[in-house]
Nucleic acid binder design. Structure first.
Lengths: 206, 206
DNA sequence: CCGGATCCTCGGTGATACTG
DNA sequence: CAGTATCACCGAGGATCCGG
């Protein structure tokens, strides 16, 4: 018997499914792609393992997450979003955009993960500004390196470097206004928040 | 000292502010308009009063909610969203749309509130379909009566009846597909989910 | 009636340790 | 690697009370 809100309302139903602590952060990481238990654990450093196991079970029961045996080489398990779960993407992006406004400066012992930065980049992507563009970026946030490829007005972001990147960005200051969309990349460079390497021609918008 | 997620991420920050139990439902009700403590309590029947008081305090500290002395006639207090808090509207609407898919049929002892139905109507509103329209609706969900006015492509929904309504809708069955946008009003009527009174000419879309 | 404050209980969370 | 087991603790949930 789970806790309910006693309301016949879509918002209440949604919160009964993904409103528990940690649940939406798990969904955020899974929006990047399928993850193993240990991958999720690495991305959510403060989550107790029993809570992670419980959340995954609940999300699986709710049809948000699917548990899959890993393909051939490595035996193991991966968790991935169902189509239903993937429909949470606009909600997560909206939450991220709202929360980025009060992000401030990283607090003591607060970490940056590749998955969260990947979703942050997706948050700020403006398809209209990217029409007809074909670029590869490599972004460095501390030790975290992710790559972004823009092609045909769509954005693909993933972890790791991009050897043939047209442009390499390195964050050197508080980049939260950039993530919140309150600052353009050009302004960010002027303020010394981002250092770039490569061809500045590709600095249209992200 | 509050609980944190230990992540430098907009989603995590947002959940630290509005991710606690009941918080987003309070915001949902306040999106309809300012409420008094007792109004909120009525709309969230299962919330303990100490939790409601604590959430309001936290949301006020976070700059999401503002506490206001009530205007002249009645002395008292109202809580209203700040501009920052009101920016959560797209997130709430997205959550409501997602949750409405698995809304099912009202569970035992599950109630329908005016505020939740008002937000549900806002969820389904499609500005493009309402262009040039000027209509007044009155909607009945059990004992809950709300009114909707469409003018100049915008929607205004409020609690209570609308004496000069062009159209009166009464829900008679499981209306969740309608709320989720999976069903058109016309189809809903054919299935006997909604009974209408008035001039069917106004049945374009909501 | 409004706007809480207070007390108590119980279960989930969080930390750590341990196992197949 | 992928969890399960144990346990302390604190916040949710429920009831009652209290000053305007």
């Amino acid at each position: 018997m789970k806790r309910t809100y006693g309301q016949f309302c879509g918002v209440a139903r949604a919160l009964e499914v993904v409103g528990e602590r940690w649940a939406l952060l798990i969904v955020r990481d899974l929006l990047v792609g399928p993850h193993r238990f240990t991958d999720l654990r690495r991305g959510l450093p403060k989550i107790p393992t029993n809570i992670l196991a419980a959340r995954l079970q609940e999300l699986e029961d709710a049809g948000v997450v699917r548990r899959c045996a890993l393909p051939r080489p490595a035996n193991g398990v991966v968790y991935e979003l169902t189509a239903y779960g993937a429909e949470l993407e606009p909600v997560i992006l909206g939450l991220g955009r709202w929360g980025a406004q009060s992000l401030g400066v990283p607090r003591e012992a607060e970490i940056v993960t590749a998955d969260s930065m990947i979703m942050a980049l997706r948050t700020t992507f403006q398809p209209e500004a990217a029409r007809g563009l074909h670029v590869g970026y490599e972004c460095h946030f501390g030790a975290v390196v992710i790559n972004a490829r823009i092609a045909d007005g769509t954005l693909a972001v993933a972890a790791g470097p991009l050897p043939d990147a047209d442009l390499v960005l390195t964050a050197t200051g508080p980049i939260n206004p950039l993530l919140a969309g309150a600052l353009s990349p050009t302004e960010a460079i002027e303020r010394g928040l981002v250092r770039i390497t490569g061809n500045p021609v590709w600095l249209e918008d992200k």
